[in-house]
């Protein structure tokens, strides 16, 4: 079942297209990575989903409802963490939770208290007394405490330290295991790689990849680093070998497709050290934007 469906979405600001004919869908239970460099159109897409902006063309449907027309109904089931969560600086953490309780219902209070403990956030402090990371924590608490059907996260871990990042990832996995769906916009490729089962990559407002992490890795092959006790053999004749750098005893290259011919050469050589790794999203990203 599609939780979110985006069809031919375009958004123009004056003569500039921030989004150009973007389409993708998210299924229930997905942790969906939304990747792209700054200004690619990620936040614009999210703002249209949230009903802050109106699409120039195309439509967005969430839970089968039109995101512009039935925005309030949709938001009852959406938890949202913006890229720069701006909350009320004169309110305390607890005041934010109280306000949300009044808007969303009393049932969120228990979960908010739990999350406050897990993320170690002092409820009495006013926002202006909190660091950016702690304000980010509150935004995460507010979004997760409502137990939404869809969680939209726009670079949620920016400003969080590695330990908290790990705690947050655990919370996301638990949320997914309880049946939740996540749209995660991020710059952090390792985070996306770690969490997401599906990804789309957007560049200059256009969708350039809509795939799974494993498929993308398979498509973009492996990175091979080998150290030889004798002279390094030649890999240049093998189909699919790219970016080959050889010295007397080492060979470093990327290879797409079948690894068999590479392994065959390696098996006939005196290999001192060998590292074969799947291409990381970072490598893929670099290749796409090259």
């Amino acid at each position: 079942m599609d939780i979110l469906e985006i069809n031919n979405l375009s958004k123009r600001f004056g003569s500039i297209y921030a989004l150009d004919d973007v389409s993708f869908s998210i299924k229930k239970g997905d942790i969906f990575g939304f990747l792209g460099p700054n200004g690619a159109g990620k936040s614009t897409t999210i703002r249209i989903i949230m009903g802050f902006l109106k699409a120039t063309k195309g439509n967005v449907s969430v839970f089968g409802l039109d995101s512009h027309v039935q925005s309030v109904e949709i938001k009852k089931q959406i938890g949202y963490v913006p890229a720069d969560p701006i909350l009320y600086q004169d309110w305390s953490v607890n005041e934010h939770i109280r306000f949300l309780t009044k808007i969303r219902g009393k049932q969120i209070k228990t979960r908010a208290e739990e999350l406050k403990k897990i993320l170690e956030l002092n409820g009495k402090k006013k926002l202006k007394q909190l660091s950016t990371g702690n304000q980010q924590k509150l935004a995460i608490i507010l979004a997760l405490s409502i137990e939404p059907s869809l969680l939209i996260l726009d670079e949620p871990t920016r400003g969080l330290d590695p330990l908290l990042r790990s705690t947050f990832h655990t919370l996301l996995r638990e949320y997914r295991d309880r049946g939740g769906t996540v749209l995660l916009s991020s710059h952090d490729l390792s985070e996306v790689e770690d969490l997401c089962n599906k990804i789309v990559i957007i560049h200059n407002g256009k969708l350039i990849q809509d795939t799974t992490v494993s498929h993308l890795r398979a498509k973009h092959g492996h990175k091979v680093k080998a150290h030889f006790q004798d002279h390094a053999p030649s890999f240049s004749d093998i189909k699919g070998v790219e970016d080959l750098i050889t010295t007397t005893h080492t060979a470093v290259f990327n290879t797409k497709g079948n690894l068999k011919p590479v392994l065959e050469i390696l098996s006939h050589s005196k290999v001192g050290d060998l590292e074969i790794s799947s291409a990381s999203l970072e490598d893929i990203f670099e290749e796409i934007y090259k």
Binding site: G51, F52, V72, E73, K75, D84, I86, Y88, I103, R104
Partner: peptide, 14 residues
Amino acid sequence: ETKTMGFLLSQPIK
């Protein structure tokens, strides 16, 4: 201007 409107508009409020 201060973007706190984002917090309000992300809630189910008409």
